[in-house]
Design a protein around this nucleic acid. Structure first.
Lengths: 375, 375
DNA sequence: TTGAAAGCGCTAACAT
DNA sequence: ATGTTAGCGCTTTCAA
């Protein structure tokens, strides 16, 4: 099983290694007959070009580094998938680096990828501030595109969801369906999603609501915080709780159910991201779906641009509009069921007798986005 | 930003490239003073070894190919994470290949990875039968370990969860808590998980149950099939439904709720895998947790073994025992609530008035396994 | 159109 | 302990 090299193909086909290289790489015109002989010999011997040697000589590995904070964040797998497919369609391979949400690890992984001579980097920044240094340095060496999360302006090309539009869609929807006391549960960090979604909420709510924006509770992007935030927010008697991501929304739904608060009867709840299975929450979660495939395609496109050109020119920042996915958790209240907005309290209270029949059923649960896996 | 090479470090430190290489790679003893000078010069110049050149010469890229069926399968991200971390701890990098559940794509991706001179392959086989050829061929070239899913015996080293033990745990638990009419919802494919879990169910149920194993419904590993299977299975009046994975179990829970069947009052439901958020299902899902970290560690260990040795010796097949995670979906029925096992039918029926208060609440939802993500 | 030759940056014999 | 010398397998001048 010793590997076949160009030399052997050259010998077998009776020409020089240079010619073989030209035929196989298609770099230059080659005589038809020679080409045929070469291809035949290569086929016969089962020749496979050694990409490492090729990379050393041509100074291009055909490899892209994909750096992300945590592959277990349920939003990322679909993004990774789309990126991987888009790159593979161009004959490139993906070196994966998971940073465990740690900017220092991130810096180390980026350095490692550069040592391995990746042609370019796709980075989902771990932190809005502390990722900046490493990203900036790396961008000086290879084309680099920030994906989904930025780390400060002007650092590198970036592609992300338009969080402002997403929040506007949510608030529009809630106001249109009669909600007026709309609160917000978000994260306090410096991540671009946390910051932008909060800002958008405040801007939109301030503009659309009679009493201005409602109560805001900031913690982190965890389910646990979603639960906690409910207890802090309920006394202000909201009729809608807008969450900065789906995990928070799930936490909120859990706690509301525990407390016997009816969703969407008493309170509407919305998320952000549309991670898998959100159509299966109870009630199914209204949320903002990030345009994952388009994000990946655009990022890869930008990389291609830089790789083809001289990696200069102005930084590009692309924002893609997301889509509102309306499900049961924000269904309008039945007009006949006007009730006190105060719900029974107590962790062990029985489910609200007022709960409307689930609106999700067939239509919502039949969503085609739920993964079907063969294992 | 032109890259610094060994030559320049050699010149700056006043010695030969060979010496510099030795100092930096630590291959051979070098004089203390020389070593210091070299390191200083390297540091000063910001030297970073070119891994591609190193790989070409030393015939080792320090890169492992990770081939998987679908990164969006919710079970895989955590596995990928553990593999990535374990490999990185050894200074190796991961080339990721997502196969879209297609064995032909899989074969192509494996070939591509071999061209890129990966030192070894970690393969989660896409298909129990059709993956075999490509895997076998690849295993002739580089060390290869099958992870989580096999593709026939004796093809390569393999590491997987002990499905038989997992199923035994489930059935033991159900029988111990008084269930007697235990049915099975699984997949008909040739995947090792589908086959082994079914076989284990039949063996265990046959041994433990008075009337032998119950009704078996085989489709695919999809939520949709879980829903469908419920309608087929209910007429046989089961008091427990064992599912071959969590997705099926979620589908089953959904449909049971739609039909007003009380879980766990009327029927217990169990899953397999413990994918993220199963503690958040309603009711929280009893399932079998795969030992993800140990699987990854073992696979990486096996690879290391082959990489260190001469890649011969007998094929190893390692099975790791999973753990039963008991949650609300299989809670014992309250002895006082003996009721007819026939549930009201009809898609739009209201939630069962008999439903017990959720047992999940604080303890179950407080699980530390739910990802906390910063985005 | 083809061939000969010179490396890409590094490691590993073989010298010393 | 260090230097010298050959390459790893390929692409790419430069000649012919």
């Amino acid at each position: 099983m010793t590997d076949v090299t160009l030399r052997e193909v050259a010998r077998a086909s009776g020409c020089s290694v240079a010619t073989v290289s030209r035929v196989l790489a298609g770099t230059r015109p080659v005589g038809a007959e020679t080409a045929r002989r070469v291809r035949e010999a290569a086929e016969e011997l089962g020749y496979r070009p050694n990409q490492v040697a090729r990379a050393l000589r041509s100074r291009s590995t055909g490899t892209i580094g994909l750096v992300l904070p945590q592959i277990t964040n349920p939003f990322f797998p679909s993004l990774v998938r789309e990126v991987e497919h888009a790159l593979h369609a161009e004959g490139r391979a993906v070196l994966l680096a998971d940073c465990d949400d740690d900017p220092e690890v991130e810096a180390a992984r980026i350095a490692d990828l550069l040592d391995r001579q990746v042609d370019a980097l796709l980075v989902i920044a771990a932190d809005g501030k502390r990722s900046r240094d490493a990203v900036e340095k790396a961008a000086a060496h290879v084309p680099l595109v920030l994906l989904d999360r930025g780390c400060g302006p002007g650092v590198a090309d970036s592609v992300a969801t338009d969080n402002a539009t997403g929040m506007a869609l949510v608030l529009d929807h809630l106001v249109t369906t009669g909600r007026r006391r709309i609160c917000f549960v978000g994260a306090a960090g410096t991540g671009s999603a946390a910051v932008e979604r909060l800002a958008a909420y405040e801007a939109e709510a301030g503009a659309l609501l009679p009493h201005g924006s409602g109560r805001v509770e900031l913690g982190d992007f965890s389910l646990e915080w979603g639960r906690t935030a409910v207890d802090r927010i309920l006394p202000s008697r909201p009729d809608a709780i807008v969450c900065a991501n789906d995990l928070l929304a799930i936490g909120v739904l859990q706690r509301l159910r525990q407390l016997g608060v009816d969703v969407p009867g008493d309170v509407a709840v919305t998320g952000f991201d549309d991670i898998p299975m959100m159509d299966l929450a109870d009630p199914a979660l209204t949320t903002v779906r990030q345009p994952v495939r388009a994000l990946a395609a655009e990022a890869v496109h930008l990389l291609g641009h830089r790789l083809a050109g001289r990696n200069d020119g102005p930084r590009r920042s692309v924002r893609l509009a997301p889509e509102l996915v309306v499900r049961a958790s924000s269904a309008p209240r039945a007009p006949s069921a006007l009730r006190a907005s105060s719900a029974p309290r107590g962790a062990s209270s029985a489910p609200s007798a007022l709960r409307a029949p689930s609106v999700s059923s067939a239509e919502d649960t039949g969503s085609t986005r739920t993964p079907e896996v063969e294992q």
